[in-house]
Amino acid sequence: GLKVVIVPFSMYCWGKESLVHWWGEVAEYYKDYPADLIFEVINEPKMAGHPDGKEAETMEWYSACIQEVRRSNPARLLAVGGPHFNGVKLLTEYVTPEYLSYKLKDGSGFCDDPNIWGVFHCYHPRGFTHGAKDQDINRDHPGWREEILADLEEASAWSRKYDKRVYLSEWGSRVNHEVKHVEEYTAFVVPELSKRGIEWSYYCGLFSNAWPYGLYNSEWGFEGVERVVKNLTGKEPPKEVPSTNQIVNSDFQLDLADWNSSEYVIKGTADGQGVGGSRAIRVHVPFVPMDTFDPEMKRKKTPSLYQQYEPDWQFRAMGINHANKYTIQLRRSNIYKISFFAKCEVGQARLQIRLGHAPDNEPVIWTS
């Protein structure tokens, strides 16, 4: 059934004590929540800055966090993976009593805790799951089924050895390929996981319109990936497309990610100045005559701030099926509400909104 998993990036640069403190606060806040709420201790430590060669140190972070969570949540289900990118070989090598050698106040440890599950990720064949260009999964990766089964068997062996369940917390493919290949991929993996009793989460359903792994689009819903969704859920996806904010949580990066500006705008952030005390974007515009034509630039000098993925964004889909997907998408005949909070700290300001075609914001199709 549907579960909720809380999982952080550990942020190596902030130090172990910062993560332990964070988990202590989270665990205390959610201690009375139902068992359907699961804590996954760390996601992909290498992405959060944990260096190669420091695997034992990474597992010490896991141990410290487990001990902190167990103070307030003695029976909460904890999902624990290995270092690096949570590959299955890191699970079998490091999620062990040798590397998780902590002891709780009652003397119990890793082997005694029935509510610890092992975590692994599986992105095979990687050229298909992470490839920016269209691929035929059978022609380009003839041994893809065997690659996946090898990982599932290794995870199952770990499960039997330690008498603990395993959780495949990430698997999935970019959807810039011809969709029939993604359908075949998902139709194969789901039954194999079920045979082995492996719980799983697919990456990913809803993220942002530009994210090449996302199945859901704010304007088209699940149109075009209906069979993929049915393979994953056993149900036909809904035809209705609920109203979805295209900007909020448009990227898991922070602050100014994907916000761009003209040469006349200096961007920064302002703590506590956003809605409800959140962080806001601070924009400084030096004196520039508005809408003054510059003959050298061959365009008007209009200071601007806009949200758009850059053409050289590393996750750009370059295939013929889903190339050049941008965060903000408009569908003909739809009605859109644009709202925001803004204030002028010094003097007066005039604010104007424009919608234009990516990537150059030309032609402009609407101006407030």
Rank of each mutant, 00 (worst) to 15 (best):
Y167A: 01
F9Y: 13
D291G: 09
D140P: 05
Q67P: 02
P237G: 04
G1R: 12
N43Y: 01
F39R: 03
T269G: 05
F207R: 11
A280N: 04
V265K: 01
G49M: 07
A210F: 11
S63C: 05
A155H: 01
E98W: 10
S250Q: 09
Y213T: 07
W259N: 11
L232P: 04
L215K: 00
I335T: 15
R139W: 10
K325V: 06
A150S: 14
S63E: 04
S194E: 14
Y202A: 06
Y102T: 05
V88F: 02
A349F: 05
K235T: 09
V5S: 05
Q307V: 13
L152H: 05
A150P: 03
P114S: 09
I148P: 00
W14M: 14
V41Q: 03
Y29C: 11
T327F: 10
E183A: 02
K301I: 02
T269S: 12
E178C: 10
V364A: 07
F9Q: 04
I198Y: 00
K46N: 12
E40V: 04
E219P: 01
A323T: 08
D106A: 06
S304Y: 00
E362Y: 10
G268H: 05
V26E: 01
G118D: 02
R279M: 12
W366V: 06
G109V: 04
G214Q: 00
A48G: 15
D36V: 05
G24L: 10
G118M: 03
G81R: 03
P311G: 05
D251M: 09
N324H: 13
V275N: 08
G356Y: 04
W259T: 12
G87E: 09
T292I: 11
L77R: 11
S159D: 07
E93D: 14
Y29D: 08
R174S: 07
W366G: 05
S101Q: 08
F252C: 13
G15E: 09
L193N: 00
G356N: 06
V119A: 04
